[in-house]
Nucleic acid binder design. Sequence first.
RNA 1: GUGGGCGUAGCUCAGCUGGUUAGAGCGACAGGUUGUGGCCCUGUAGGUCGCGGGUUCGAAUCCCGUCGCUCACCCCA
Length: 432
Amino acid sequence: MKPEKLQPLPGMNDLQFPEILHWQHVEEVARNVFGRFGLREVRTPLLERAELFERSIGDTTDVVQKEMYVFEDRGGRRVALRPEGTAGVLRNLAGRGPEGRAERVYYMGPMFRSERPQAGRRRQFHQIGVEILGPAEPLVDAECIVLQVLLLEAFGLKKFGLRLNTRGSEKDLPRLRRSLRDLLESRQARLCEDCRRRLQSNVLRILDCKQETCQAVVRELPPLDEFMSQESRDYFNRLERALDEIGISYEREPRLIRGLDYYLHTIWEIFHPALGAQDAISGGGRYRVDLGGESIEGIGFALGMERVIEALQAEGAGALSAATDGPQVWLVSIGRDAALANLALATDLRRKGLHCGGEFQSRSAKAQMRAAGRSGAELVIVRGSAEIERGTVVLKDMKTGNEDAVPLTEIVETVLGRVNREAGHDTAGTSR
RNA sequence: GUGGGCGUAGCUCAGCUGGUUAGAGCGACAGGUUGUGGCCCUGUAGGUCGCGGGUUCGAAUCCCGUCGCUCACCCCA
């Protein structure tokens, strides 16, 4: 067991080889897909004024009320580690003036929520997100959803499902809340303790309460869109038609509501059946956020990188080979003089772009060969005092076991030739 | 914040109802080949049994506390 001091904080993990290969893969694929949709990357600070999140996410939400890392900085400002990405990105875009109001951007990076860790839920977790600004338009919503589906497909995921719903327009929301409260108040005896509190603070959340008793009450309610205007219903119908036309399958989920206050109209979640309790790998929606007296409209989504990677592993698609970034050449040195000479040679080879390994300390030849074998290198260069005298090295092919004496003057050339041939042959299916 | 499960070697774990020097496999390291890997054989290193307290002649084992991990609630990506 490691001493406590050497362990990271609860819910915060080191990411390292070999799992890090999955992370790099996901990031690389995401950048590629975003390029196809004309999105630019934006990187915003991890630390922001606490009120930025309180105002945009909503100060009655759980995320803000009990999960945010809030503290005072040295200047006496109330600051918070970002619990999600949208607020910071919108702050940035709003500050860019009118052009910012039509930007399409993506971001990726760590977010922080002080919850009790469990499978698929860390205190520091990582999201990849997208924000497409501009006035409400069903076709933009459809494009955003398509983007997200293509992204997940590009990662190699197959078994995910899309749940879709609408919260109605900004004008509908107050009426929706009021109607729900009226309907639910008469049945509040059958609601759980939390939901009775939510009647006042956040009625909508009652809809997706997990308590069976509350679910029963919710099932008695009429469909939500009965409380919405004709425009809102038309808006959602146009979106559904667009998705059908494009060929994106989804499931209408009338009780889907989502936890942040800024959503309106289209909202959705993407879940993966292999994931257990935390099965939402991604979620998004259309929003309107007021920042500094200006209101910003757009649509966006965020996906949880650790959940996506977990899903990839569950599907068995993520079998990334550790060998893809291993050394191509390994240098074995017998004696200190040889070690120095080999370090010089390794420098030449590395300058030419080769992946070189080797220990420049005189262990036994046997131990060094064992290490060479384990490294997976295709070629091994062996040099001892005899080779130094003759001005040669021994070049060994680890597959065939053949050894040749190669003059020092030709070794770089020879290795480059051999490795290139093998590389062209061998890496067809890998991502080197 | 609430509840369940689990903390024994670098890793995966064994250790029966408390009994004397705490084990195995894998891995690491070394030797078997005075300078050659993947197989085989031999050996070596490595453990405050998470930590603290209690019960007992005696605790890895039982009890309490604590810390950590983990799963679930809650919430969300």
